[in-house]
Amino acid sequence: MMDFILAKYNFWIYVIIMMIGFYAVIAKSNLIKKIIGLNIFQTSVFLLFISIGKVEGGTVPIYQGVEAVYINPLPHVLILTAIVVGVSITAVAFALVVNIYREYGTIEENAILEMSKTDD
């Protein structure tokens, strides 16, 4: 039982972090809070990928002779790309939020929905 928990806990933590982010995205009304949730959601996926690539007793993937055991470098590459793409998403979301604030004077989702209803 203990072995089983030790073998999986990293994957469970990723699920918990992901669900915290997911809750913020769907339940919070504040748009900035939604973006914070999105960020947390993204990093949880990174945690899953890097955890998959971990090899027990392996070294950092920098050449140290042919017989050395290395940690899988492929997830690292994918996540490097994903981190940068994640920041691009955040930047575009922020630009949208700033524009919404100029237009409506608030960044609370339910207040914005009220206002756009009365506009019609």
Binding site: I32, S51, K54, I71, I79, F94
Partner: peptide, 24 residues
């Protein structure tokens, strides 16, 4: 977890640029 390149990127982009964007 042995992902040193990812750690550098996370510290500079995740903790650095993201926070600057947030504050801006």
């Amino acid at each position: 977890l042995g992902a040193v390149d990812v750690a550098i990127t996370e510290a500079s982009v995740g903790a650095g640029i993201s926070t600057v964007l947030f504050i801006a």
